[in-house]
Amino acid sequence: MSLETIYKLVTNMLSASAVTLEVFFLTLLFSLPLGLLVASLRMSKYKIIQLPIRFYLLIMRGTPLILQLIFIYFLPSQLGDKLSVTIPMLPRFGAAILAFTLNYAAYFAEIYRGGIQAVPTGQHEAAAVLGLSKVQTFFRVVLPQVIKNILPAMGNEFMTLVKDTALAQTIGVMEIFRLAKSSTSTNSSILPMFVAGLFYLIMNSVVSKGFSSLGKRLDYYK
């Protein structure tokens, strides 16, 4: 490959990496709070709430993300076809974010649930006796401890998400892996794949570093 093509490749990859980053951050932005909501519904004492949530968790965690992407992207038109109505399609990028969000919220929900259940009942009781409200207890007492509890599992999940963003290309989102694939074939060289690999690696080193420094910051208590 000539220097010029390499230069072009790198600039193209930088712009494609912006898409990858967008998928990553938007997914987190929506799935982290959604996961918390799902976890709280999952822990509801009412079966009528609990059961559909368990079903949702089963679907999301029990089927490949790549299938969910295709389903969510093509479903509206297929369904509209069946019902003879026109259901507007989600734009590719929006469908990708929706699929990633629903999928990751399911994983996050289960991690939250584990983290919440790991907080001793004594903490809830101490807060109750002190007169803290349920909301205060959750946000002031429970959640900070949950965050410490779930940090290692979350770190894993974040790193997986970085790599999973590559699946968005299935429905035509032009992210870094798609670009690498295309230019690999155009240039008959696996260098673009290597560059893409390097990008994921750098991104994940940042994520990993972030989690370990956050872990250190929470090390002040046990």
């Binding site: 004594g122 903490q123 101490a126 401890q145």
Partner: peptide
Amino acid sequence: VFQNFNLFPH
């Protein structure tokens, strides 16, 4: 006052 103190560790 609890047997296990139940202080908030964080």
